[in-house]
Design a protein around this nucleic acid. Sequence first.
DNA 1: AACCAACACAACCGCTGCTTT
DNA 2: TAAAGCAGCGGTTGTGTTGGT
Length: 265
Amino acid sequence: MVRTPSCDKNGMKKGTWTPEEDKKLVDYVTTHGCWNWRQLPKHAGLSRCGKSCRLRWINYLRPNVRRGNFSQEEDELILNLHQSLGNRWSAIARQLPGRTDNEIKNHWHSSLKNRSTNIKSKASEGNNLKTGNRKKDKANEELDIDSLLENASQNILESTPILTSPMPSSSTISSLSHSDYSGINYKSFGVEDEACSTQLIEEKSGDFWTEPFLQDFEGNVHCTTDDFLMPFLELGILYPPSPIDDGENDWLYGLHMAQTNEVHL
DNA sequence: AACCAACACAACCGCTGCTTT
DNA sequence: TAAAGCAGCGGTTGTGTTGGT
């Protein structure tokens, strides 16, 4: 299932990630954010290319990545979305918080593709009015996608409680510039860094410090700050709020404690 | 028990489009 | 405005696992 580790001509390691590498990446991203994927491995002490780090983080290490079996609701949603969007995995993943485009793509190719083919063949049997491939101009296509995603989002919220994941999907993340989600990281952990502008998130989300929920950049409320941080707690990267401090710096205390202790994954 | 095919999934590759200079 | 750098995306590959014979 995993690739044999190897190195490319630049000495960059390839193949399976080791627990040590994972730890380094998680440590670095959670404390410094993803300010530049190309430079990140150098600073994090990893012999990996930035692309590989980014992929590893988004598809595997990022908090609240949902792993394991897809629910029936998720399967249905993927099938519906794929019928309309085609292989636009990132757009599909956007409607399944916690699922990554890569995971959905794999799931599609391994099990849903056949189901889809069956459905299509059945549909075509009873529908001779079907037209051929229509070429749409870009603007019309975008409109269709927007309305479709809007409907899909409604379905998700109404049908599956698990889909209220606090983290944006990989594609939500990927649609942000690096400075954008550096902002998320630093603000979320109560850590400021000059290199990472928090302006955008503040503009889009109102006053972060008085806002009890995390919002994505379309203004959709995903979770409370504590919900967002819980996965880090479970990983042992963060620690519970200090018993001696019931103030607003609880999670900062946790981060501080984490930085002074060994992180076990 | 051994073999083989199908499945599952992590990871790589290369292209595209956006942002910055 | 053009070029360079970068992140994101989708296609593809490689390999461990599982199930059937």
